[in-house]
Amino acid sequence: MRGPHDLGGLPAGSVDLSEHEHGFWEKRIDGIRLLLADKQRRLISVDEMRRGIEALGKEAYDKLNYYERWTASVTGVMLEKGVITADELGRKIAEIEERDKARFEDD
């Protein structure tokens, strides 16, 4: 069966040539992946990264944008390997969300 990532030869619309400046969050996950993959750490290989993306399932694959898929995959592999735990991740996300919300609660 064709996975959601396997797009070669399928019908599709015209190519959207518009481009965007990469945001900091996109470069950050790229940088995190580079570090985790380097010789010193070897915590994620290209193949593990791809497996994580391909395992997202069609709905998520189509819905998430490129670096969202990367984020899901790198984070998933770090959870699998026990580098971080789901509990730590959940708490940290909540903490950062609170901090982020505080930016909009001026005065």
Partner: peptide, 24 residues
């Protein structure tokens, strides 16, 4: 780990990436 564009709350995956970075 602030995003470039500060005008909107961070999306779920931005939060996840930020959390991953801080935890690591």
């Amino acid at each position: 780990n602030q995003p470039d564009i500060d005008s909107e709350p961070m999306g779920y995956y931005q939060l996840m990436g930020s959390a991953l970075g801080e935890l690591l």
